[in-house]
Design a binder for these strands. Structure first.
Lengths: 128, 128
DNA sequence: CAGGATCCATTATGATACTG
DNA sequence: CAGTATCATAATGGATCCTG
């Protein structure tokens, strides 16, 4: 997913102002939650700090390559912190930042929609 | 983004039950809102029915190929309906289904987060 | 254990042109 | 106007192996 553009120099038609004012932050949000992994990783870390291998077990089917990449990006974006014990590398833990918790509303709305969606699909299947 | 798997046969450890019960609907939701375009298209159509070329103008930088593809998928998933006038192809319009409106909570939470996120980034830039 | 490196397959996006 | 077709690139994901 490409980086969203800044809207500051965007001179768009007036009739679209309401729409444009919505779309920019929404594209921003879609950009930071990017892909299938960020939210699941965040959710796993909401249970508590986790080590790399724990995350790998709990985030279904993620590979070490992808996990490492996602963790780096999330760290860069200020969503997690890496706690490396100076004495032993083996104790590295990942921890959510306070900022990550501001994703809770998104996560809840996703979950609610997903539950409803799954029911809809199931009912449609039963109706056949 | 790959299709999420059904969880029905998933025999996971008990300690992960709470987490697992969250993750499945969330993955479902992430799957249906898939990528950068579905939400922006939905938003544009929340203003009213639109024609293909109108959508292309309003959804920033989407190409006709991608737009055509997204519209097909969204139609298949029951989010939009295609209204084709039998006499003239040129009058084809796209319309949201009632189901699409159930995405509103997600859209709002994305927008709120996005606004906050943008402020955070701006403040960090100013602080330097 | 925590990743990085490599190779490869698939998907997503994009530019441009074209058609009924 | 509403898309398709073609070509190209980038992003993502998976498999496997490697290393401090």
């Amino acid at each position: 997913m490409k980086k969203p553009e800044n809207s500051i120099n965007n001179k768009s038609a007036c009739r679209a102002i309401e729409y444009k004012s919505e779309i920019v932050p929404i594209m921003d949000a879609l950009y930071v939650i990017n892909g299938k992994w960020r939210i699941p990783i965040t959710l796993a870390l909401m249970e508590g700090n986790k080590r790399f291998s724990e995350l790998q077990k709990e985030v279904h089917k993620i590979t070490s390559k992808v996990l490492a990449h996602e963790l780096k990006e999330m760290e860069l974006n200020g969503f997690i912190e890496k706690k490396t014990n100076a004495q032993s590398r083996a104790r590295t833990e990942y921890q959510l930042t306070a900022y990550s918790w501001s994703l809770e509303a998104i996560i809840k709305s996703l979950r609610d929609f997903g539950i409803q969606h799954r029911n809809k699909i199931r009912n449609e299947a039963l109706a056949k």
